[in-house]
Design a binder for these strands. Structure first.
Length: 446
RNA sequence: CGGGGCGUGGCGCAGUCUGGUAGCGCGCAAGUUUUGGGAACUUGAGGCCGCGGGUUCGAAUCCCGCCGCCCCGACCA
């Protein structure tokens, strides 16, 4: 049994290793009655997140570590694509939203009044909380782009977004406040946009692959806007998904229900498609974990975002937009990768790689072995959560299964007498007795 | 925004119909016995029964209003 190395050190201030006896959160046997979705039940029972109000969650130490890891994977892939990370404000003035018309048409937009006090119906509002950032990023980037030499250019941010969903639900899958990576690309022409768009598809696939959802995430044709026939969604197959999609057999492609009735559109996607062929499409429930879209000049027109080409002509900048929700992705991973005992995190996003279980705290020799292993795992860079609590063995096994760390290392008097510890792989439950030395060398890949 | 359901110690629930000293399980604290898959017993702490008004000698319970939460639907760059 090999314990593969994972690249990338964890990068915020949570000490590693951590002891369960010191962790601010606790597990719970029962989940809140008002949490119905699997992801919210497991995440709250395990103490990863806590709900503040409908559609708004707080991320606790374990949950924040997962979220940060997901965001770092996204960050790496967007950087590799040539994206430059920025951070735009959450608080927006009314004016750019009015300019594109979305102040009045985007009903999930939170509108505020800077006059303060209660915003009653009919009150003049002059601020918004950002649900997406086309209105902000377009004038921002246009201010730096004057020549075709400045293009293409790509910026992105990872940030908390606000949408006043009429009905938040399904835990992290549909919140009013949520994390979003939003990227915007700027081009001189449609071909260049198309080329970048296609490379973004590949980068998105890499993100889902690295998050453990690659084999069940489909590129899905969805309705387009006025400048392109389709947008593309990335849909992760799960029975708990909110969307209905139709998979094209023998491909990694699907068609969203919203356009599957449009015969012309489907023929465009599947050449030779005829009425009656619907039965070849397999219906699935899925969660949208990404959405990419060719904006073309939808936003550069209202803002007058132009560049000067080789001939000295002023031309509109051609744009694309690329969204992905890290917090929703986190919920999707839980929905897809869990069993009756709890969550099963892929190594790439797990809050800790190893859960170290001391079965008999208080026994000097077991405590000594536990502390020694804790230190030696830390020394070789294995992030470890040490269960040093005085709880029964059953409680500890159940809790560690619920927490879903990829590996469990179990130390107890029985193994100690034989000079071994046990290693359990959470994903398949396989256990193996192993000496301390070979345990460490497995973790270092030796 | 329509339809339905629910608010009772930290969590999960009973009690509401038929008004009369607020209960159970889990968790928490202390103790004893346990100790490799959610241990047992004993003792204990912890409640403006969502909020406001009303009826009544008396309201968790009945009436009116409000707030919050969940589910189904509508909606979902």
């Amino acid at each position: 049994m090999k314990l593969p190395l994972r690249g990338g050190k964890f990068c915020h201030g949570v000490p590693s290793p951590m002891r369960l006896s010191r962790l601010v959160t606790h597990t719970s046997k029962e989940s809140s009655r008002s949490e119905v979705s699997l992801n919210a039940q497991l995440l709250t029972r395990a103490g990863y997140v806590s709900r503040l109000m409908a559609g708004v969650y707080q991320f606790l130490p374990l949950g924040l570590r997962v979220l940060t890891r997901i965001e770092n994977i996204i960050r790496e892939e967007m950087n590799a694509l040539g994206g430059q990370e920025i951070l735009m404000p959450t608080l927006h003035p009314r004016e750019p939203w009015a300019k594109t018309g979305r102040w009045d048409t985007l009903d999930v937009l939170y509108r505020l009044s800077s006059e303060g006090g209660v915003v009653a119906p009919g009150t003049a509002c002059d601020l918004a909380l950002g649900p997406t950032h086309e209105e902000i990023v377009t004038p921002l980037v246009a201010g730096f782009v004057h020549s075709y030499r400045d293009l293409p250019t790509v910026v992105y941010q990872i940030q908390t977004k606000f949408r006043n969903e009429p009905r938040p639900k399904s835990g992290l899958l549909r919140g009013r406040e949520f994390r979003m990576k939003d990227m915007y690309s700027f081009h001189t022409n449609q071909d260049d946009l198309d080329d970048f768009y296609n490379r973004a598809v590949v980068a998105y696939r890499r993100v889902y692959e690295r998050c453990g959802l690659g084999d069940r995430t489909l590129l899905t044709y969805a309705s387009g806007g006025s400048f392109s026939r389709y947008s593309h969604e990335f849909q992760t197959l799960t029975p708990y998904g909110e969307d209905t999609i139709y998979r094209i057999p023998d491909t990694e492609l699907a068609i969203n229900r919203e356009i599957v009735g449009d015969l012309d559109a489907v023929r465009d996607i599947i050449p030779g498609y005829k009425p009656g062929d619907e039965k070849m499409l397999q219906e699935h429930k899925a969660i949208e974990v990404g959405n990419i879209f060719k904006l073309v000049t939808r936003f550069s027109d209202p803002f007058g975002a132009t560049y000067t080409d080789r001939d000295g002509e002023r031309c509109p900048i051609i744009m694309g937009t690329y969204g992905m929700g890290p917090s929703r992705l986190m919920g999707a991973i839980v929905e897809c990768l869990s069993d009756d005992h709890g969550m099963i995190w892929p190594e790439s996003v797990a809050p800790y790689r190893v859960g170290l279980i001391n079965l008999k705290p208080g026994a000097a020799d077991v405590d000594a072995l536990g502390a020694d292993l804790e230190q030696r795992l830390a020394a070789i860079g294995i992030e470890t959560l040490y269960d040093d609590r005085t709880e029964s063995a059953g409680v500890k096994f159940a809790d560690m299964d619920l927490l879903g760390l990829p590996w469990q290392v179990i130390v107890g008097p029985r193994g100690l007498a034989k000079g071994v510890v046990e290693v359990k792989k959470r994903a398949d439950g396989q256990r193996q007795e192993i000496s301390v030395e070979s345990l460490l060398s497995h973790f270092t890949g030796g």
